[in-house]
């Protein structure tokens, strides 16, 4: 969970999470004893000297990701670490300054590749292609990514405490145009564009020669047309 060999990592037993087996209703007393063994999962803390871009930490009860950090120290004085951090729930970037030696709790955040299955209108369902485990992400987590979600698209799902926090669509998707104005045949040079409506509801500006029913490649990061797919 945290880097090995780091000098200031602290594993404190009083901050450990305790997991107790729940499934013990019908168990015999002896088995119950056994099942009640507790498993200690240490929560890691990061010292300021371990800060680096991308590190996930807890601040004010929300998971944050470090965007950038700078070590500040007057020759004879106190050292500080000045950071810019992104709140992973709201996406907002704020500045925070830490005294050197301060430690902050790590955030149980991980990015995993998951396959998009379907949407039931309220939730978007994803599956881990290795474990076949399924998860449902709500509107807040999916955000604008819903415009690019097609069957079986492999997305980056950011999990916080095992729950989807954010969904990032693949960088490039291929989609069929559902509706657009008639094409201007042969016009490949003027560079004009027109709006095209996709099956997912996304609207992409395409060159004038593109026709309804054609398949195109789109860069989801900018929402821009890349090329025709043949």
């Amino acid at each position: 969970m945290c880097s090995a060999g780091a000098a200031r990592v602290r594993h404190e037993s009083n901050e450990s999470a305790t997991i107790v087996s729940q499934d013990s209703y019908n168990a015999a007393p002896a088995a119950l004893e056994r099942r009640h063994q507790t498993i200690e999962i240490p929560m890691a803390n990061y010292g300021t000297n371990e800060f680096k871009g991308g590190l996930k930490i807890m601040l004010d009860g929300d998971p944050h990701s470090i965007v950038s950090n700078e070590f500040v120290k007057p020759g004879k004085g106190q050292a500080f670490t000045r950071t810019r951090v992104r709140n992973l729930k709201t996406g907002r970037v704020v500045e925070r300054t830490f005294k050197s030696g301060e430690s902050v709790e790590s955030a149980d955040v991980m990015d995993t590749s998951m396959q998009y299955l379907y949407s039931d209108g309220e939730y978007w369902h994803f599956m881990n292609p290795e474990t076949f485990e399924q998860l449902a992400a709500d509107k807040t987590a999916v955000g604008d990514a819903h415009l690019w979600l097609m069957d079986e698209a492999v997305c980056e799902v950011t999990l916080y405490n095992g729950q989807p926090l954010a969904v990032t669509a693949p960088n490039f998707v291929e989609m069929t145009i559902k509706e657009t104005d008639p094409g201007l045949r042969g016009d490949t040079a003027t560079g004009g564009t027109k709006p095209a409506h996709m099956e997912t509801g996304a609207v992409v500006k395409v060159p004038l020669f593109i026709e309804e029913g054609e398949k195109i490649k789109i860069d989801t990061r900018s929402g821009e047309y890349v090329s025709r797919v043949k």
């Binding site: 007057p74 106190q78 500080f80 704020v94 500045e95 925070r96 830490f98 005294k99 301060e102």
Partner: peptide, 16 residues
């Protein structure tokens, strides 16, 4: 931003 852990360290606060 001002660090949470400044405590009563006036010289550290002056440095920052």
């Amino acid at each position: 931003p001002f660090p949470n852990a400044m405590g009563q360290d006036l010289d550290a606060a002056l440095d920052l």
